[in-house]
């Protein structure tokens, strides 16, 4: 199977869906002219292929998302690109009070088939540009929240998200854009709300998503050399949360670590750990552990940034500790 980047996988999904459905439109800051299309190149070239359907917008996130909602109400399928997840804060009212309220509050009279594409990530950009709000998005009823880790998942989930009749927050990741993976040429879709095993193993269950799936896979290779076989459950969708594989896995391994990039307090890891112990307490040989980002505004300095974020080595350390009954 051919290998392509996560970035290219996203672009192919956009292209295929725009070819399939003339009501699909893309709006965002610098998605057309700047650097040939997109601050991170995802939409490069699409404006030329689809005249009038890919448009640069003012830097006004509340309008990009709000107008995206209105246009979706009015019969389009809008894909709104928000340059980084940090800037969604400007549009939080539109996401929470409008996108997520329309279908239920108006009793099914209004639907909002919209995708908000935005990357998590960091890269020496300091506190206001290096954040992760996965848990916030995932806590909002009526939103769908997706965070693919691989090019394969990114393509299949983005296509599904565009066809979905509900607002989907589609969390990409700056550090994943250039990663490569196998993606078939033929069309496929991945359902929203289904987790996936990214690695099978018998000793410890790791539940994770997004960039931390990739870090957990690196950790698994190191641990395998030590004779520890971890099983990795990639949630892929953060709302609605599919914990069926996590539960299936923990009944086998009897140990679980939740690995997330964001802050620990109120993180999605807390929700996952609480939900799993509610139904699988008797299967646990150890407390469910968490690996998470440190709770500081992200510093600029290289060493401090590195210390703040979780990486494979943190996952390795947590698994070793759990295997040595140190939790």
């Amino acid at each position: 199977m051919p290998e392509i980047t996560y970035r290219e996988a996203l672009k192919r999904a956009l292209r295929e869906e725009m070819q399939r459905d003339p009501t699909v439109v893309i709006w965002g800051e610098d998605v057309v002219a700047y650097a040939g299309g997109g601050a991170y190149g995802v939409t490069a070239g699409l404006a030329k292929e689809f005249p009038g359907r890919v448009r640069d917008t003012p830097i006004a996130e509340e309008a990009i998302i709000g107008i995206g909602i209105g246009a979706a109400m009015g019969g389009l399928r809008t894909v709104c690109e928000i340059m980084t997840v940090n800037f969604t804060l400007v549009a939080w009212d539109q996401i929470v009070n409008h996108a997520a309220k329309q279908s239920h509050m108006f009793n099914g009279q209004i639907k909002v088939p919209m995708v908000i594409r935005t990357p998590n990530g960091h890269g020496r950009t300091a506190a206001t540009h290096s954040q992760n709000f996965d848990a916030w998005f995932a806590s909002i009823p009526s939103l769908k929240v997706v965070a693919p880790a691989t090019p394969y998942d990114a393509k299949g989930l983005l296509k599904t998200a565009i066809r979905d009749d509900d607002p989907v927050v589609f969390l990409e990741h700056l550090q994943l854009y250039s990663t490569r993976g196998e993606v078939p040429d033929e069309e496929y879709l991945i359902p929203i709300g289904e987790a996936d095993y990214k690695r099978r193993g018998k000793d410890v269950t790791i539940v994770t998503w997004g960039r931390m799936t990739v870090e957990s896979l690196k950790a698994a290779r190191i641990l395998a050399e030590e004779g520890i076989e971890v099983e990795i459950v990639d949630l892929r969708t953060l709302r609605p949360l599919d914990l069926s594989l996590a539960l299936e896995s923990v009944r086998k391994t009897n140990r679980m670590i939740v690995v997330e990039e964001g802050w620990r307090t109120g993180g999605l890891g807390a929700e996952i750990a609480a939900s799993v112990q509610e139904v699988a307490f008797n299967y646990l040989d150890a407390p469910i552990a968490r690996v998470a980002g440190l709770e500081v505004p992200m510093p600029y300095a290289k060493n401090l940034e590195r210390a703040t974020l979780p990486f494979a080595e943190d996952v390795v350390a947590a698994v070793r500790a759990m295997m040595q009954n140190q939790y």
Partner: peptide, 24 residues
């Protein structure tokens, strides 16, 4: 299309409906 209770929040929605009408 509804009453909206966050002051100013519905203005972008209305523009979006108008954009859809223009597009379609």
């Amino acid at each position: 299309w509804g009453g909206y209770a966050i002051v100013g929040g519905h203005l972008p929605l209305a523009v979006g409906l108008a954009v859809a009408a223009q597009y379609l």
